[in-house]
Design a protein around this nucleic acid. Structure first.
Length: 702
DNA sequence: ACCTCTGGCTGGATAT
DNA sequence: ATATCCAGCCAG
């Protein structure tokens, strides 16, 4: 059975039920939260709220992983030919199923394990038929990379073994592998999705392998094996395969089944079946949503060549060479330490601009002569006054729901914990859509590509931002820093802040609100680089080198130690003591390096290879040099891999971690990195770096 | 195969 | 020696 995802129905205990709360109930809730809006707006909001508040289906789900035995251990088994035997398959179900299917091969030994039930088969065909029967009994099956390996392999292997097609529940399509009676979720594709990575998982994983993702999210990884599959004992093989399926299972289960819930919400917003939603990026979701809105209104969807012909105009110049149009403003920070700072944020600035200025591909540069004087500041674009823009309406509506409904409820202490988690899931899903809704219009491959929309959004946001900065100055408040939609003000005067907020609401009809208060904040001369301690004692670090993911942990740890000390500083007077302690940290790290009391792992940089090694033709960055050395040793390296390397005194200056020796380390280079990392904070604190180092060097030589 | 955008920092490679 | 470009990572 295929369900239309946009209808708020769901399966509960195998039965299809209407999941939407009653119309009365929704109307009452909408009235309570959005009572001040117009009847027209409330009608739209009612539709979205009833969709988003619809009950969540509870799925029975299965996690699957298979192992194939190739006679040549270096050859990767081909999923299209499926010549090699499937020797193991682990199946883990949300209903408690924990099974490993094993094929009796030469050297087979009965495995002992209490974690799972071992099911042993003499005949591969019989084993596969049994596995197919289990797969077919679940509505949702999850794999890691099942689209490209496990599913096509099982399908083709089944065909090779002459299993009748109707007994194989897997169908292969252009976009991936599907099930005849269920949904197949390929976690590899899903975790690859940048939006999922950044918004759902807060960028907590970097590498797109099952081991790395599980390690980052669950705190446990794959079972390490040194031998090829064929040389494992039966028990080792079973445990290895089981662990992989278990990781997949726990990724689905963790955080109260967050991933599955998120998929349902994304599917409902994007009007895509879940299977499609997990195989498309955010541009696909938004395309699907906007197409749906066109069809609902009976509107024609323009061809992209027509759209570009009419609306391909760009009228601003980007600050950065090579970009298409001008983006946001970043205010030069006032260097130094500042106490009592308040940060104000425009909530959802870009979506708000889209909404308030009626921005949409059909309203930007509309055909009406009368609208031509409704000009977007700093551009040659004008915006329609006669008709409501589709995108403006849809995104505006989602914005209102996120800002006024889900965001506040997700952190409301009066809401029960479980309910709050649910609000936070929806809130995050909405954020994905809102953030991308602007960007896709500046993306050439997007089918509704319309640069005037992206350009106007950024231009109006700059206009609003500048006005707010001006007003703050008028009110006598110093603006210490600002980036895109935030203002860092040197005041805690509530009266003045309220005045500014009220002015922005009245003049621009935008919501400016207090984001956080800093006990103190440290700026260098650099933009997008600061360190602050909030009124709650939380240390916020933005952009500083010491926080970046590729930096050696030796340096990161030293940096963290410094942050801990800075987090305890409450007043200006306490800085002196903190400075002394920080100097001590630096000295001790310096000695550690000089004495060689480190391990290579802690000194390794970890940088991602963004393309194939042979694709780096213009320059050869250090991590690529290291990757080449790995290849020379016969170690495989592919795009997306993270290369760990240490800086050495040899001719090319780098050595992959796996091949490096301690005596090769270029200690002075590391001292340089340590210095430059700390300098970003210390020069703003007024600590004379050279003096500390000068003393330490002197001490060292004495 | 996949890909929302611009602005800004760093270190190192390469060109002048 | 110095300026410019490339690549990676991050802020918003």
């Amino acid at each position: 059975m295929r369900l239309t995802p946009c209808a708020p129905y769901c399966l509960v205990d195998g039965k299809l039920v209407e999941a939407a709360p009653s119309e009365e109930e929704i109307k009452r809730k909408v009235e309570a939260v959005f009572g001040d809006l117009s009847g027209e707006e409330k009608k739209l909001l009612t539709y979205w709220v009833s969709l988003l508040e619809a009950a969540q289906p509870r799925f029975k789900y299965l996690s699957l992983d298979i192992e194939v035995l190739s006679p040549v251990s270096t050859r990767v088994p081909s999923p299209t030919k499926a010549r090699d035997k499937v020797v193991a398959a682990a199946l883990i179900g949300s209903d408690g199923r924990r099974e490993v299917y094993l094929l009796k091969t030469p050297g087979f030994k009965e495995p002992k394990c209490d974690q799972f039930e071992a099911k042993i088969y003499e005949d591969e065909s019989q084993m596969l038929r049994e596995i197919f029967r289990v797969i077919d009994s679940y509505p949702v099956v999850a794999t890691f990379n099942g689209d490209d390996f496990d599913m096509p392999y099982l399908r083709h292997r089944g065909e090779v073994l002459n299993i009748p097609r109707e007994q194989i529940p897997i169908s292969l399509g252009r976009e991936g592998a599907s099930l005849k009676h269920g949904i197949h979720i390929d976690l590899y594709k899903l975790f690859m999705n940048r939006s999922i990575q950044v918004y759902a998982f807060d960028n907590r994983y970097r590498e797109h392998t099952l081991g790395a993702i599980a390690q980052a999210l669950l705190g446990k990884g794959k079972i390490e094996i040194e031998k090829p599959i064929g040389e494992l004992t039966t028990e080792e093989l079973a445990r290895y395969c089981f662990q992989d399926a278990l990781l997949v299972h726990e990724l689905l289960t963790s955080d109260n089944e967050l991933l599955l819930k998120l998929l349902v919400v994304l599917s409902r917003i994007s009007k895509m079946p879940i299977e499609d939603a997990c195989r498309h990026g955010v541009s696909g979701w938004i395309k699907s949503l906007l197409y749906f809105e066109h069809r609902k209104r009976g509107c024609l969807i323009p061809r992209s060549d027509e759209l570009i012909e009419e609306k391909g105009v760009i009228s601003t110049k980007a600050v950065i060479e090579g970009k298409k149009y001008r983006g946001a403003i970043v205010v030069d920070p006032v260097p130094g330490v500042h106490f009592t700072v308040t940060v104000l944020d425009f909530s959802s600035l870009y979506p708000s601009v889209l909404k308030e200025w009626n921005l949409s591909y059909e309203t930007a540069r509309c055909p009406h002569q009368e609208c031509r004087n409704n000009v977007v500041p700093e551009t040659t674009h004008w915006i329609c006054r006669k008709r409501r823009g589709i995108q403006s309406e849809v995104i505006g509506c989602l914005r209102d729901i996120r800002v006024r409904w889900y965001k506040p409820k997700s952190s409301d202490p009066n809401v029960p914990e479980a309910q709050r988690r649910w609000y936070s899931v929806v809130q995050r899903a909405l954020k994905v859509f809102l953030n991308a809704a602007y960007g896709v219009f500046g993306f050439e491959e997007f089918p509704l590509y319309c640069p005037p929309v992206a350009e106007s959004t950024a231009a109006i946001a700059r206009y609003a931002f500048k006005k707010a900065v001006e007003k703050a100055s008028e009110l006598g408040v110093e603006v210490l820093y600002g980036d895109t939609d935030s203002l860092f003000l040197k005041t805690t005067n509530e009266h003045v802040i309220n005045e500014l907020v009220a002015w922005v609401k009245k003049e621009l009809n935008l919501d400016l609100e207090i984001d956080k208060r800093y006990r103190y904040i440290v700026f260098s001369q650099r933009k997008k680089n600061y360190l602050g301690v909030t009124d709650k004692g939380v240390v916020d670090v933005k952009g500083l080198t010491g926080k970046k993911s590729h930096i050696p942990s030796f340096i990161k740890d030293a940096f963290e130690e410094m942050l801990k000390i800075l987090g305890e500083v409450k007043s200006e007077g306490e800085f002196e003591e903190a400075k002394m302690k920080i100097a001590e940290i630096l000295k001790s790290k310096y000695y550690t390096l000089k004495k060689g009391e480190y391990n290579l792992e802690d000194l390794s940089f970890k940088v991602m290879l963004s393309k194939g090694v042979d694709k780096y033709v213009k320059t050869t960055p250090p991590h690529v040099k290291a990757a080449r050395k790995l290849i020379n040793k016969g170690i495989q390296v592919v795009p997306g891999d993270i290369i760990a390397y240490v800086k050495t005194k040899d001719s090319d200056g780098v050595e992959p971690l796996e091949l490096a020796r301690k005596d090769q380390v270029d200690v002075d280079k590391y001292i340089e990195y340590l210095m430059s990392t700390f300098e970003q904070v210390l020069d703003a604190l007024g600590i004379d770096f050279d003096r500390i180092v000068g003393i330490t060097s002197l001490e060292y030589f004495m």
